[in-house]
Structures are given as C-alpha cells and as structure tokens.
Design a protein around this nucleic acid. Structure first.
Length: 811
RNA sequence: GCGGAUGUGGUGGAAUGGUAGACACGCUAGCCUUAGGAGCUAGUGGGGGAAACCCCGUGAAGGUUCAAGUCCUUUCAUCCGCACCA
C-alpha cells in the first residue's frame, strides 16, 4: 500500500502527550454524580538519578486500570506528586553548595519530564510537593493536632544515632545495627527527641487489617512488625524491691528457676549485694559500650553475672537467683524475665553456661507437677495460673508489642520545621495555627553540627523569636521532621490540593475516600504504610476523615532486577534507564513490556530480548491496523456480512474483550498482553488477514479494528490514540466507551470434548455445545481409537462433564 | 527460630480439580528483502517409532479422587521480612 504510514513512536508519542495536556483530558472532577475510583501510587523521591524502571512498572499498571475505568465512564482520580524532603538532596546541596530548594526543583522538573514521556494519565493539576510551604503548612498543622492530644511528646532517650549523617534514626531505619541508607554502624546517643505515640494505635493497626484487602505478604509483615503477644506480668519481690517480669508462658512458671534482668534495668543497683557489686558494675559498663551490631551477632555466647540477690518462685517456694544478662532487652516487656531453661532455648543456653538448675514442668504439652495444675494442658494452665496470680495480687494478664514509638526528630535542615517554640516561662508552646507555616530560613550552610543539633540552631534571627503565649523571648524548635512526615498524608491533599482554609474540604474527602487501590514497593510496608495508617486513624478519631482505614486495597509490584538477575545498582552498572528505552522503542513498548514481564507482584529480571519481542508485536499491530483502516476507507460498506467468517472473527474479538477486561480488573497484566498477542496472531494468520482486506468485508474490518484499538488503549495509549484518529474519530480514544463483550458471541456452537479412558487422554472430539450427556457418551464410544481401549475390559463407570469431557473407567 | 511467598521446558511464564507447557524469548531449518533490533513458513519437554501412535514428565515421598501442577499430609530447596521480642 502506497500510503501506508510506518510506525514511528517518536512521531506520535510527544504529539499526543501534548494534546492530552492541553485538553486537560485526565482531570478528575469533584462531583458525585458518577461513581469514583481513586488509584494511588507511591509518589517518588525526586533523586538526581531520575526515574527507575520500577517506578514505571507500578505507575503503568495503575495507569492501565485508571484508563480502563475512565473509558467505562467512571470519575477517576489518578494523581502524582513529589516526596522531596530528605537527606540525599541535603547532601547534594552541601556538596555542590546550592540551595536544596534549587536542587529539588531541578530534580522535580526532570521527573516530571520523564513521567510525562511515559504517557501516564496523571491529573497534573493536583500535583503536590511536600517541600512546598503551602503543603507542609498542613503537615505542621497535623503535628499540632497530635501534640494537642498528647500523641506527640518529648523524651530524653537513647536514640539510634548515625555518626556519619549526624542524625537520629527511627528503629525502622536501623537494619542489622546499621543505618539502612548509608550502612554506618549505628550508635546510641542520649538526646531529647520528639516522639509520636504510634503504640497507642498498635491494636487497631493489626485489627483493622481485617477490614481491608492487602496482599498476604503485606498484611503479615505489618502484623509481625507490630508484634503483639499475649501473656502475663508476674511480680517478684527481691529485698523489698518489686521486679515485674513479662512472659507469654505463665504455664511454665513452676519451671522458672532464676530471674534475669537487662543490665539497664532500674532495680539492678538496688538489689546487687556488696560482694557482687564490682562484677555487676563491670558487666554493665561492658554492655553499654557494645554497639548494636555487636549485640546482634548470631550465636553469640550467653554472658551475664549474678547480682547476689534471690527471688522466690510463688508456686514452688524455691529460691531463684537474680542475674543480669544482655540477652534480656531493656526495651521490651518489663526488661526482666523469669527464666525457664527447660522450655526456652535461650534460658537453657544461659543455664548451661552458668550451671543453673533446669526443671521440666511440661511433657507432651501437659503439666507434670505443681499440685493444683497437674494434668492440665498448656493453654488451660496459662489461664489457671494467671488467675491464681491475680487472686494473690502478684500477677495479671498483659499484652506486649514489638512496635516502639516513632522517633520524629531529625537534626537536619531539609525537612519540615517542628512548629513549636521553647519559652523560658511557658515551656513548649505550639505555634498558633494562623502563623503556619513555619518556613525554613534561607541559609548558607546546611552541614549538621558536631553537637547533634540541627544546622537551624546556628541561625540566630530565625531561632530567636517571641513566645506566642506570653510575648517574652523564646527559641524555636530546631529539629525538623523525618522524611516520612509529608508522605503520611499526601493522598489526602490530592483530593483538594489548592485549599488554603483546611487541609482538604470534608465533602471532597467524603466523596473520594477510601483510596480504592494503593500500589507501592514492599520496602515501604513497615515504614510509610504503617505511619500513614497511623496518621490517618488519628485524623479519623478527630473526625477529620470519613473512614477508619485509608486504603481499601494494597498491592506491591515485584522488583525489577537487572539483566544479570541482580538488584539494579549504579556500582554494578546494571541499571536500565527508562529514557533510553523510550528513545529506542517508544513509551508504549516500554509500558507493554513491563506488563508482560511476569505476574505483577513477582520480581523478575529485565530482558532486552523480550522488550524487543513486545516491540515487534506492536509493529505487527500497527501494520494490521493500517490494512484494516485502508480497507474501511477504500470500500463501500456492504451491509450484512454476517457470514461464517465474520462470526468467527467477531467471536474472537469478544472473547479477547472479555479476557482483557477481566485481566485488567484482577491485575493479571501479563496474561492480558498474552491475550492481545493471541488475538493479533489470529487476525494476522494468512487466511484471516486475506479475508479481512477484501472489500466485501469492509464493515467487519472496521468494527474489528475499532475494537482492537479500544482494547489496546489502556495499555498503549499513544498508538491507540493515533490509530483512533486515523479511523476518522475526532475525540480521544481514552474517553471513548469501553467496548463491552457480547455474552452471546463469547459462547461457542461447537466445543472440544476430551475423551479419557481411566483418566488418560485418548481422543479429542468437536461436538455441539448443547449435546446431552448421552450424546457425548455415544460419540466418545464411537471413536475408533477410544473403542480400542474400551474393548480391553469392562466399562464400570462413565463420568461426563458437559462441554468438557467424557471419562470411561475400564476394568 | 518466627512469619510470608515461591518451586512447571534452555529462559520469562500459562493452566475455574478436567488436553500440562498458552503467550513470549532463545534456538533450528527454509523463504524473502534496499542486510534489519525487519518480515514470512515450519519445528522446538524427555524417551521410543518410518509413521500412526505409545510411554514418561510440574522439587521429593505418600494420600484423596473417575481425574491432581492444582486439594490433604510429610519433606527438601530458594527468595523476602523480622529476629536473644521471653
């Protein structure tokens, strides 16, 4: 064909991106006349490295879902923004001596360019940036609400301190005793810190998972992280000093032969005898100088020292020596345990090391001793012993969590200032709401200070202010918030991004929430996801948001590994840059390839060969479409082409429509692409294609290519839009109606029936779909090949599954 | 140790308890062409056979069932998260 247009992604992609932008095609409307869908992807940190192919996987998947819903007439919100506070930018600013504000805007511009080049249907009008004072004004506002309710508080605690970045860290940022970002061995440092009481929500953060649809691995990681356990507290008296232990196994109390306290336990100094004092002090000093890394070494031999004191087992009246050892953690439970060496591996190792008694109390889960409790099973004994302790006033049921309160202070410049002032007279005074935002001052140096104070502390005219309460001199808080602050509520701001009266209009919140689907990386499961659920629940308790959970559904895309199967990293040099893929193959090919790679939630390695295969597929689609469009243009439309051939093509079309529709809804993007490929294979087979280009099939060609373009639109938006216009359509394919499959056309007249003898396949028959069981059996028996096997014995049973199979059981 | 996920060709993977290997990559042979990251045709789990066809085959071992990749039990391996959390 002389006028056939070649497929050149670079010719069409930028063109349509610009048109979509100009026509505001993807703006979400705040009306409630249509059903809404809110699709959310984690907004990126705009690093200097630019977009990662992992971002593309997440954003494309939900883009496909958003486009699919939009085509079905729903009101779709699919927003994007930037989580731009954080240390990499601050470090970049220090190194290059430019303001973090400038570095951020440069990186944001680059990310925007990259995202737009992918043809993602974000509503850019709603874009947010956490470093924008008009945004962090509300981050500060929420902090003040937490402060009002006592959920933000200051505490002098031994925090995780990164000596390289000179900042405090949350527990969540410490991995194996090292700072997860820079790998520096974390030290302990006593500092006054702002804390958020996430532990007040521990139970609800677990319980309410029942009301939402999270992938198993996400939900279980959250449950583990909160780490709820049930047991009992038991009070022991040592030299008049009360020592309370926590145990999940009160049933083993008869087997408790000694107590162990953490070296940091407050009672240690009081109960230590004179004879043991020197040894105890030496041990305490030694454990304090140990780093977290040292304390966490695997298979570390148990160490400890006896305090010289004794407690008494309330059930057996036996004397229990009281030891201190660093295998007992000060920060968990009560910082003290009753040791049951017979039923706990750690206690056993300790008992063996120091030659302490080991007393077995349970065998086969049944209590073997201790009078009243003898013969009970473990769970009965737990209840009974706890009750007895309660009656005696020396114990009670108790619950513990691994979750710690969230350390909310950072000693850095590039974060939201914590909006309080310190007044000599009034103490901590919140900055009044109408004076928000407390903005970051412009400074020349961003380096953290050696003392552990934020660089803000050095800016006298910013720090020195007046007390909002008494008008006297006061100093501003110089700590800033962690980078997790802004991202804890950004999805609320998208709903009403330009509101300067409230963080978002309650009516709009009511309309758009919950987020219908939230996708993001697994690495954010225990940090961001938990934090944002906490903030949201707090806002719910304040009556500021309409539902108890923010996200109805959470999924996590699998990581894309480098072509070598290893995690992509700059130092290995196996990073794939989306820009170069777009340049070479086009955004549509990149998008479709990332969907075709494998199951969405599984990790998988990058492959240039397979990307190329997807690109080839798109060329074939294009060429076929050109043929069909040409036929449609050149031919008079002939009415009534409902022959056998047309029916077979329509059937294939509608089967594919059905498959594509359901695969998008269930996020089976890889099989959606397969279905499209099968469809194209069918249409381009020599026989089908030669018929489709005949003038008498012009009408069929037209409706086929229309359906094809529509079903491709969510996945390859640029090519679909271009073809749509070649078809003579004026509007955008992305707001054209999604083609519903016809259930009648999805059904077949004839179906393949498999015939088995003793479960083994012996024949394939093509029979009418409505054949009765008897007819199926008859046809199966009549098959020559089957008959041979039937003759070998006696048919004792015949199983018929309509439209599927006949199985003869022959003996 | 605890929790979660996953084991299917040379590779990525597909299969409401009902034809294992769809779709794709790679490979082989042939064709075509202004030689390309192009297109077309055929083949491609293992074994046997000229063929028809037969046997074997979803980490391993049992079991349930007319029928198991799929359900149950045991077990092994890999990956992820947490980890001296009492």
């Amino acid at each position: 064909m002389a006028d056939m247009k070649p497929y050149k992604p670079s010719d069409i992609e930028a063109k349509w991106q610009q048109t979509w932008d100009e026509t505001k095609l993807y703006r979400a409307v705040d009306d409630d006349s249509r059903q809404k869908y809110y699709y959310l992807v984690e907004f990126p940190y705009p690093s200097g490295d630019g977009l990662h192919v992992g971002h593309v996987r997440s954003y494309t998947a939900l883009d496909i879902m958003a486009r699919h819903k939009r085509m079905q007439g729903f009101n779709v919100l699919y927003p994007m923004g930037f989580d731009a506070f954080g240390l990499p930018t601050e470090n970049y600013a220090i190194k290059h001596k430019i303001a973090p504000q400038l570095a951020t805007s440069k990186n944001v511009a680059n990310f925007e360019r990259q995202l737009k080049a992918l043809g993602l249907s974000f509503d850019w009008y709603r874009a947010v940036n956490t470093t924008d004072p008009e945004y962090y004004r509300w981050t500060q506002w929420i902090f003040l609400r937490l402060l009002e309710k006592g959920l933000a508080y200051q505490d002098e605690i031994a925090i995780n301190w990164c000596p390289f970045e000179k900042t405090g860290l949350a527990n969540e940022e410490v991995v194996n005793g090292r700072h997860e970002r820079c790998g520096t061995v974390v030290e302990k440092k006593l500092l006054k810190q702002w804390m958020l009481k996430i532990t007040a929500y521990a139970d609800r953060l677990i319980e309410d998972l029942k009301t939402v649809d999270y992938s198993d691995r996400i939900a279980s990681q959250q449950v583990n992280w909160v780490g709820r356990s049930e047991g009992a507290e038991i009070d022991f008296t040592v030299d008049g000093e009360k020592i309370t232990v926590y145990t999940t196994r009160p049933d083993t109390l008869p087997g408790a032969t000694f107590l162990v306290l953490a070296p940091e336990h407050k009672a240690v100094a009081k109960i230590t005898t004179k004879e043991q004092q020197a040894k105890v002090e030496e041990y305490v000093t030694a454990t304090q100088s140990e780093t977290e890394v040292g304390r966490q070494e695997a298979d570390r031999p148990k160490t400890g020292v006896w305090t010289g004191a004794y407690a008494k087992n309330p059930l057996t009246d036996e004397k229990m020596p009281v030891w201190i050892a660093d295998y007992v953690l000060a920060g968990y439970g009560t910082g003290a345990i009753m040791a049951v060496p017979a039923h706990d591996d750690r206690d056993e190792a300790f008992a063996k090391e120091f030659d302490l008694p080991i007393k077995v109390v349970l065998e086969d889960d049944v209590v073997m001793m201790a009078g009243d409790f003898k013969g009970m099973n473990s769970s009965e004994a737990k209840v009974a012993i706890t009750k007895k302790l309660e009656a005696d006033g020396i114990g009670r049921k108790a619950v513990n969590y691994k979750l710690r309160d969230w350390i909310f202070s950072r000693q850095h410049y590039w974060g939201e200032p914590i909006p309080v002032v310190h007044c000599a007279k009034d103490g901590v005074v919140p900055v009044p709401d109408d004076q928000l935002p407390v903005t970051l001052p412009k400074v020349e140096f961003y380096e953290p200070t050696e003392t552990g104070e934020s660089p803000l502390a050095a800016i006298a005219d910013w720090v020195n202010t007046t007390c909002p309460k008494c008008g006297g001199p006061a100093k501003r808080e110089t700590d800033t918030m962690p980078n997790w602050a802004g991202s804890s509520w950004y999805f609320l701001r998208y709903i009403d991004p330009h509101n300067n009266k409230v963080f978002a209009d309650p009516e709009k919140l009511k309309y758009w929430l919950q987020v219908d689907l939230y996708n993001g990386g697994m690495e954010h499961t225990t940090l961001h996801l938990l934090y944002s659920r906490f903030w949201y629940k707090f806002l719910y308790d304040e009556g500021l948001v309409p539902t108890s959970e923010p996200y109805a559904k959470r999924r996590s895309h699998g990581m894309i590994l480098g072509p070598d199967g290893r995690k992509m990293s700059k130092s290995i040099g196996n990073v794939i840059n989306p820009d170069s893929v777009v340049e070479r193959y086009g955004a549509d090919a990149l998008r479709l390839y990332e969907m075709f790679m494998g199951p969405f939630e599984d990790q998988t390695a990058w492959s240039d060969e397979r990307l190329n295969g997807v690109s080839r597929f798109l060329y074939r689609v294009w060429m076929l479409a050109q043929d069909l469009i040409a036929n449609d243009r050149q031919s008079e439309v002939v009415a009534g082409d409902a022959g056998e051939f047309a029916l077979s093509v329509d059937r294939q079309t509608h089967k594919t429509l059905k498959k594509v529709h359901h695969d998008i809804e269930s996020m089976h993007f890889n099989t959606m692409v397969s279905a499209l490929m099968e469809y194209i294979n069918f249409l381009t087979s020599a026989k089908t294609r030669s018929e489709l280009v005949k003038p008498e099939n012009a009408d069929l060609a037209r409706r086929t290519v229309r359906s094809l373009v529509l079903m491709l639109a969510p996945s390859v938006p640029h090519m679909a839009e271009e073809l749509w216009h070649q078809l003579g359509e004026a509007g955008s394919v992305h707001v054209a109606g999604w083609p519903k499959y016809d259930p009648e056309l999805v059904k077949d007249d004839l179906v393949e029936i498999i015939v088995q003898v003793n479960g083994k396949l012996r024949a394939n028959l093509v029979l009418p779909v409505d054949a009765t069981n008897d007819e199926l059996t008859e046809a199966a028996q009549a098959d020559e090949h089957v008959a041979k096997y039937l003759a070998k014995g006696e048919v004792v049973k015949t199983i018929v599954v309509p439209r599927k199979l006949v199985n003869f059981v022959v003996k």
